[in-house]
């Protein structure tokens, strides 16, 4: 079983977001970067599928700056066999369509059974790179998967949609994007970390070309009107109800 997995270096979810001096991007000062949490589920699933098959390989790809080698080493330490950094300083700010084009270009021509993605990178929250790469490669994709089974050249996956759980089938080769609940990602062991140092990490310079989407501005979220404490305990209920009906007019 040949499995490819796409991973991204992103700010940790606890990051305080400040707009940078260009007014269009995150100020990276003091920001801690990590492997995208949803990509951990993707890597874990790739490793499990390879282990269950008893043969094959897991290769990780990232489109990122030179720093993204760190996250690729993390993936190798978890157990992946090889990693490829598609290196460009423009990667961090790239839009989803541009990223998908770069990844599809790099993956085209490789032989694989499955490509795994996270459902979303927790920076620009685009939820789109996985399905877009799959479409560019002409393979099906099942998104936001919480349960996955691969057997007889076929993928059966479950995904939670509004109001129920969909069961989706697709033939291999296929792409899957991972949602929380798919598995519990492993931690890299000390042995894994040592072994990762010797595993191949190829760096390929790429040119993403012109962006498909241009950022005009980035700003803090719209301010919420200041809230207030209505009161304490059950005695506050009548006043709360009055405010909801008469002031907020939501009831």
């Amino acid at each position: 079983m040949e499995i490819l997995v796409c991973v991204k270096r992103v700010p940790a979810t606890t990051t305080r977001v400040t707009v940078g001096p260009d007014g269009k991007s995150l100020d990276p000062t003091g920001v801690e970067y990590v492997l995208n949490p949803y990509d951990e589920f993707a890597v874990e699933e790739a490793l499990r599928l390879k282990e269950a098959a008893g043969e094959g390989s897991v290769t990780a790809f990232s489109f990122g700056g030179a720093e993204a080698q760190k996250e690729l080493r993390t993936v190798l330490a978890m157990g992946a066999d090889a990693a490829v950094l598609l290196q460009s300083e423009a990667a961090a700010a790239a839009d989803g369509a541009t990223t998908a084009r770069v990844l599809a270009e790099a993956l085209r021509g490789r032989s694989f059974d499955l490509i795994l993605f996270g459902k979303q990178a927790v920076d620009l929250d685009q939820h789109g790179v996985g399905p877009m790469v799959a479409t560019l490669l002409g393979i099906p994709c099942i998104s936001e998967v919480v349960a996955l089974e691969v057997a007889d050249g076929k993928v059966t996956a479950e995904r939670e949609v509004e109001g129920g759980r969909e069961v989706v089938e697709a033939p291999l080769p296929c792409a899957v994007t991972a949602q929380k609940g798919l598995n519990e990602p492993r931690y890299a062991s000390l042995k894994g970390i040592m072994a990762a140092k010797k595993k191949p990490l190829e760096v390929v310079e790429v040119d993403p070309g012109e962006a498909a989407v241009e950022v005009v501005s980035m700003s803090p979220p719209p301010p919420r009107p200041p809230g207030r404490i209505v009161g304490e305990g059950p005695d506050a209920v009548p006043e709360l109800l009055r405010l909801l009906q008469e002031e907020a007019k939501v009831l």
Binding site: D125, Q126, H127, A134, T135, V161, A212
Partner: peptide
């Protein structure tokens, strides 16, 4: 931008050689 809609957004963009703005 439902679960299905998010998924279709990137796919349709791929088919139209377009950029996309999700959510």
């Amino acid at each position: 931008a439902t679960i299905r809609g998010r998924d279709l957004c990137g796919r349709i963009a791929a088919g139209l050689e377009a950029g996309f703005a999700p959510d």
